[in-house]
Design a binder for these strands. Structure first.
Length: 154
DNA sequence: GCCAACGTTGGC
DNA sequence: GCCAACGTTGGC
């Protein structure tokens, strides 16, 4: 089983929205980056766990854990002409973009802020992809030891 | 295949 | 709103 970190802007879709969704589950659509697409399509498995991370907000950080409940499958929003994430070059017979379904597992008792994570960047969280300079990937892998350490902070 | 221009991300 | 860091695009 692997661990991941998935970014979202709470102003668009955040923890509150996921908590209110049917079965506390949502398709993670709209990924339009090839590196992230490859992780979704090839590496994320049912039963994997992921941190829910809020970005572009007052206190960016980890707010919850989620379970991957459905592994990679084609993202239908790429084929929807009226959709914000429509991609005219994605052929339904050979889909370019993929998504997974995630289910809220547990909201953390508090936000583990980016600032707090950074405070451990040179020790316990050394090498964490999220903390690498210039990282902009919306989904990154998390080492098991890092996962465990972060949960123990709360 | 190079690389400049452009778009996006996301912290601040 | 600024801007650094990247990814993508497209002319050549």
């Amino acid at each position: 089983m692997r661990h991941w970190l998935m970014k979202t802007e709470p102003g668009t879709f955040g923890l509150e929205d996921l908590a209110a969704a049917p079965k506390r589950t949502t398709p993670w659509d709209g990924v339009r980056n090839y590196q992230v697409r490859n992780m979704i399509r090839d590496e994320m498995k049912k039963g994997d766990l992921a941190f829910l991370y809020h970005s572009s907000c007052a206190v960016p950080g980890i707010v919850a854990t989620m379970t991957i409940v459905k592994p990679g499958y084609p993202d239908p929003t790429a084929f929807d002409r009226r959709h914000h994430h429509y991609d005219p070059d994605s052929d339904p017979r050979n889909p370019r973009w993929y998504m997974v379904d995630v289910q809220l597992q547990k909201a953390l008792a508090r936000t583990v802020s980016l600032e707090e994570l950074r405070a451990h960047a040179n020790r316990e969280l050394k090498g964490m992809a999220l903390l690498r300079p210039g990282n902009r990937l919306s989904i990154t892998p998390v080492e098991a030891a890092h996962w465990k350490f972060i949960l123990a902070l709360v």
